[in-house]
Simulated scan of single mutants.
Amino acid sequence: MKRNTLRIAGASAIAAIAVGIAGPSANALSHREAPAAPVAVEQMQAETAREAARALLNSTDPAVQRLLGSLTAEERAQLAEAAEDSPFMAPRINWGSVWNTLKKIGGFAKAIGGKYADFKRWVDRQPWYTRALIKSVTPGLSLYDLWWHFNH
């Protein structure tokens, strides 16, 4: 493994831990209540994925409906499963299914094949429903994790 990859992975892990600890602590201090138990980063990411999946499934936006219409029945079922209020479980990611879903987004294949910074800029320029789809099919993973999987 490249030295730079290890450095980035280490920095990402430290940042994730810092966000997981600082976020609830700051919220507890601002409300002057007894601090809540720390929330694991994985649980926060899973909740973000659930919210993204719910937003997609409940949207009446025609562009979102076209995107959802392009998904197969299996992909829609996985999206519905991601939206459920099930207790946190370690994410089960089927990379073949992730690829089949995300390649339907125009420009995704080209963007994921380039540098991470270019991929991140591409994602940031996408409408909310595209970003929500990416989050919902890769619960618990960051954009960097997604990019890294398809580039290494």
Rank of each mutant, 00 (worst) to 15 (best):
A28C: 14
L29I: 13
S30K: 12
S30N: 12
H31G: 09
H31W: 02
R32F: 15
R32I: 13
E33Y: 09
A34D: 14
P35W: 04
A37E: 14
P38W: 07
P38E: 01
P38H: 00
V41H: 05
V41Q: 07
V41C: 02
E42Y: 01
M44Q: 14
Q45V: 11
A46D: 11
E47P: 01
E47S: 10
T48P: 01
A49W: 00
A49G: 01
R50C: 04
E51K: 11
E51W: 00
A52P: 01
A52M: 06
A53L: 08
A55I: 05
L57A: 06
N58D: 12
S59Y: 04
P62I: 08
P62F: 03
P62K: 11
V64T: 15
Q65D: 06
L67F: 01
L67N: 05
L67H: 04
L68E: 05
G69H: 05
T72S: 15
T72M: 04
T72A: 07
T72Y: 03
A73P: 00
E75M: 12
R76H: 13
R76A: 11
R76S: 10
R76W: 05
A77C: 08
Q78E: 12
L79T: 03
L79K: 01
L79N: 02
L79Y: 01
E81I: 08
A83V: 04
A83S: 09
E84N: 03
S86C: 01
S86F: 00
F88H: 13
F88T: 07
M89W: 00
A90C: 02
A90R: 14
A90G: 07
P91E: 08
P91T: 08
P91K: 10
R92E: 14
I93K: 07
I93L: 15
I93P: 03
I93M: 06
N94C: 08
N94Q: 15
W95E: 10
G96A: 12
S97G: 09
V98P: 01
V98W: 03
V98A: 06
N100D: 14
T101A: 14
T101C: 13
L102W: 00
L102Q: 03
